[in-house]
């Protein structure tokens, strides 16, 4: 058993255990953290498969940003989770059935694919490039148009999400930093010329 194989089993079992914890643990924060651990272990597995860019992107995007916001929300929530968990046993058979069907479908898909297409050499290695370089060439040269279309759709989605959540509230005081920066002395302070009070009195 090579060192790599040992690493794979360790990371894969940690990922599986953490995924189990996500759905079984009571505390939602611990569940979210377990999801983080799942992502991280999967990234390690991908690293072992030499998909370094995917692995780092997973950590960067999902662990570093998405899950932080997720935790953020979960911590702010004040939900009585005993109510949410009610009916766990009642719905368990349905859940198990759905999970079993999904597992069967995935196994079938992967099995059929792996039977049809023989395991080929890593295309990046064949092209004599690093994983990163090959991915860049493929995305930005061979599949440039689909990539750009996907980017456009995502941008439209982003703008839609922003406009949906944007609401103008009345009665709030909003700062305009531009105006604040451009403020002049004359706007804030008025110097008034006036005579000294008490004519003829001279101090000691």
């Amino acid at each position: 058993m090579t060192f790599e194989l040992i690493c794979f089993y360790v990371f894969a079992s940690v990922a599986a255990l953490a995924a189990l914890t996500v759905i079984s643990v009571k505390n939602p924060v611990v569940a979210a953290l377990s999801l983080v651990l799942t992502f991280f272990s999967m990234a390690c597995v991908w690293l072992l498969a030499q998909a370094e860019f995917l692995a780092v992107a997973l950590v960067l995007v999902y662990v570093g940003a998405v899950m932080v916001l997720f935790l953020f929300v979960v911590m702010m929530l004040d939900v009585d989770f005993s109510v949410v968990r009610e009916g766990f046993v009642r719905f368990l058979p349905v859940g198990v059935l759905v999970a079993a069907v999904m597992l069967a479908e995935m196994l079938m898909m992967i099995g059929v694919r792996s039977l049809e297409t023989p395991v080929t050499e890593d295309p990046a290695v064949l092209a004599g490039m690093s994983n990163m370089e090959w991915l860049g060439q493929t995305l930005f040269r061979d599949f440039l148009l689909p990539f750009e279309i996907a980017a456009l759709i995502l941008t439209v989605g982003l703008i839609a999400a922003v406009t949906l959540t944007l609401r103008k509230r009345t009665g709030t005081k909003v700062q305009r930093p531009g105006l604040q920066v451009m403020v002049k002395r004359e706007d804030r302070l008025r110097v008034i010329k006036m005579d000294a009070v008490g004519k003829g009195e001279v101090g000691p």
């Binding site: 953290l33 983080v36 780092v56 950590v59 960067l60 662990v63 570093g64 940003a65 932080v68 935790l71």
Partner: peptide, 9 residues
């Protein structure tokens, strides 16, 4: 970038 973004946890 990925490692430094983990510190926030």
């Amino acid at each position: 970038l990925a490692l430094t973004s983990l510190g926030v946890y």
